[in-house]
């Protein structure tokens, strides 16, 4: 369980990086610098030459690469959690995290192909990215993100938090909220 716990933290950290990279795409205005998807300028995205990552392509293609890595890590996380986690709701949360990251990826592609249509950009970037992805992938198997080796002790921890026990220094698990 400890390994899964650490892995979940890694996935959470890489998702934070992904969201930051997405923010860079928007703030540099490079959203449409790669006009095609899932290819990149006709190249299979993973074989796109590094030296061609110039100007806005650096941000947009970089964002896609990080998103692919996060997607890959989330697949492993979901499968691993499904395999070892006894609590059904945690397993479901892990699968929901995977579904969320796939949906985000698809919406990312669609937003490119439809030239950043406002409904999709707002839908994914407003509530979508900041909570949907940040919420689910970083905190997928809620119990797993705790430092406790025994997932069955999760209710105790929640109890401690609910009582507002300030001595409890263990990481808090905030389930994704919707609507934000």
């Amino acid at each position: 369980m400890k390994a899964l716990n650490r892995f979940a933290i890694l996935v959470a950290a890489s998702t934070v990086l992904l969201i930051a990279a997405g923010g860079m795409v928007t703030s540099t205005g490079s959203g449409l610098s790669v006009p095609d998807w899932p290819n990149t300028y006709g190249w299979f995205m993973f074989s796109f030459p590094l030296e061609k990552m110039v100007g806005g392509i650096f941000y947009e293609h970089g964002h896609r690469m990080i998103a692919s890595a996060v997607g890959f890590l989330t697949i492993i996380l979901a499968a691993w959690t499904w395999w070892v986690e006894p609590r059904r709701w945690v397993r479901r949360l892990a699968v929901a995290a995977l579904a969320a990251v796939i949906l985000q990826g698809l919406l990312g592609g669609i937003t490119v192909l439809f030239y950043l249509p406002a409904p999709i950009s707002i839908g994914r970037c407003g509530p979508g990215d900041s909570r949907f992805s940040a919420g689910i992938p970083p905190h997928p198997p809620a119990g797993v993100v705790s430092r406790d080796r025994n997932p069955f002790r999760a209710p105790d921890r929640r109890g401690a938090r609910d009582r507002g026990d300030s001595r409890d220094r263990r990481p808090r698990v905030v389930p994704p909220s919707w609507p934000p």
Binding site: T28, G29, S30, G31, L32, S33, V54, G55, G56, E60
Partner: peptide, 11 residues
């Protein structure tokens, strides 16, 4: 009048 063009690679 007019149609703007831009390159998102080179802002």
């Amino acid at each position: 009048v007019m149609v703007p063009f831009k390159c998102d690679v080179h802002g």
